[in-house]
Design a protein around this nucleic acid. Sequence first.
DNA 1: GTCAAATAATTCAACCAATAAACAAATCTT
DNA 2: AAGATTTGTTTATTGGTTGAATTATTTGAC
Lengths: 380, 380
Amino acid sequence: MCHCQGVPSVSQAPIRQNSVRAHNLALVLQTVANSADPISRASVAGATGLTRSTVSALVDDLIAGSLLTEVDPAPRTGAGRPAAGLRPAPDGPAGLGLEINVDYRAACVVDLTGTLRHRLVEAGDQRQAGALSALTRLAALARHRAEADGLTVAGAALAVPGLVAAGGVVRVAPNLGWQDITIGTELDGLPLTVDNEANLAALSELGVGELPPSFIYVSGEVGIGAGIVLDGSLYRGVRGWSGEIGHIPIDASGPLCRCGARGCLEQYAGQEAMLRAAGVTSVAELAGADLTIAGTALGTALSTVVNLLDVDTIVLGGIYAPLVARLRDAIDAEIGRRVLTGSPIRLRAATFGPDAAMRGAAGAVLQGVLNDPAGWLARS
Amino acid sequence: MCHCQGVPSVSQAPIRQNSVRAHNLALVLQTVANSADPISRASVAGATGLTRSTVSALVDDLIAGSLLTEVDPAPRTGAGRPAAGLRPAPDGPAGLGLEINVDYRAACVVDLTGTLRHRLVEAGDQRQAGALSALTRLAALARHRAEADGLTVAGAALAVPGLVAAGGVVRVAPNLGWQDITIGTELDGLPLTVDNEANLAALSELGVGELPPSFIYVSGEVGIGAGIVLDGSLYRGVRGWSGEIGHIPIDASGPLCRCGARGCLEQYAGQEAMLRAAGVTSVAELAGADLTIAGTALGTALSTVVNLLDVDTIVLGGIYAPLVARLRDAIDAEIGRRVLTGSPIRLRAATFGPDAAMRGAAGAVLQGVLNDPAGWLARS
DNA sequence: GTCAAATAATTCAACCAATAAACAAATCTT
DNA sequence: AAGATTTGTTTATTGGTTGAATTATTTGAC
């Protein structure tokens, strides 16, 4: 019948008075969290558009719930009563970030201030049976230490190098040899989310520096994956399988790829291809090699991504992070040639290096609290 | 300082009581608009989660503002007082959709029920000076006719085959020979938005049929563009230049493209390439031709898009729309080979054919009203 | 044919949360 | 020491939703 008006863009849920408070609690909490320095109630009111009295009431709730704390007033500027500074509480909820990869498992705890409180890494081949229960033990240890600090772990997120479907099901993780492994949505009573390693690594960059609203995080490992952040939030795709850029065709007559096609990106910029081209055996040795071939292939593939999505920032992570200086020229040249709009692209190395996925996982948990502090406060 | 929590995902604006009403008005209006049949206040309450009394109050406002009307009750089912049916009003706000292309200009008026009320098309080369003022006259005529029907034109949107920046500036429209043309944000006192033709055409598909939340609209014309709809809303990119898929590399040793690279998609599936390959001179004759080369190239490029964005629906528009049957096999084969996740992809022809961009433009205006009915009601 | 049951829609008192304005607190300026 | 200035709290008011009671209108049963 009526075609043209499209699907609703207003969220499906009704707004009641409760939702107003929930929204404004999140607004106040995030305003404090995104401020570099301690910030006063009055400044929060100014930044959000809420009145000072409303902010005071909301802040009272947030302090009572250990989401904010008052700190000593910032150095004062002029006349007037000195402000009480607000900061995210260092002793409230914390995020438990987990990662499992081919040759290590890891867990970390990050508090609301963004501080890494604990970091546990265990090397070793994870392609064995029992890897998951070892990870569970590691997670329990990290949680125990966090709770000894007075933190309350709000949830856990696990980064996996593979395709993850809803409900914590790993459809396939080729390098781990996993297929249709159900990890579930709970870990020792803690809510658990499982997500692709590149997606969570991309989240770790959100909030770093100048906050680009949209960017692509490219994760170079054995395969090549991408985390796509659009307008400030991670885009996961219909089934959660976005960002598979490893098989963008570079040259139809190129080398045969394990996927069956010829000349995929992975055959030029994948870990093994780069090692082979450079004639070395370890990733560390790549720092001294000529990476023009890989850089050009990456630039070609990223041109397609930029032409399609019009993003202006690309973050290189995984094995690429320490190699950005050597890759930049070839990538820039190719993007300059192929991106029609001539947009300048900012290319930068991942901030957290090998910890990116784990840090992003912990950050994802904390995001949940920041986006719904009312739900956190209402927990029994 | 505090890194990991990321940018706020809660909208920056505070919610006050006004916003509650504004949101719920939109919720009720959209619930009615998205219902195939007339729907009762009670059903709206059930669907939205609001109470019947709240819905009644909101509906009163919407009816008073000519956004909804009561119609005869639907065939009743059992006992009880019969419901009064609600429908979008056919005599309220309307959207004015405009399009300018190489060889025609067009205007249409669509009302809130999705009905096309007027459609004006003028053939002729638009690459001349004065094309814009001719379009302005056509728009005025369409508006005049709509107002003679008792409609109130809420705004206008113009589809242009080129890159459009903020503020109604056409950065470049190669086939029109335009460069840095400022069209502005107003047309005879009406709010005007200017957007890429493929973007608006994509919007025309939103709300058709089973409402896929994410899809790609591919517009085949002289060049090839794409409109990207993710999670129910159009993704425009950082500068509004998303969807440039015409120059995805298909074969590094292929024919030289006007962009300077070799083997771009446009060289296989662009209008001129297809005509040349088929040995015909008009688009209509393509219906009888072998389109395997174009289909394979399209399939290769779309595989990249699907691997990157994990969308499950692709709509083929422009010159591709009537050719879907002949293109499908080659596209499907290529996607089947190259999309690693093995996801089934739905491929379908555009619903509105050559009117897609114009209809989408009108729809975009109506979307604005549907998303902010309170703003519409508050106009003086 | 009348009454009970069922469903739709409206009315009204209660409640929740934000607002605005007045007030209290703490510091700076002169 | 007095006034200016800014922060933070208190209190009455307002807007908007809720929930229960009420009215309206039909079907079905006796």
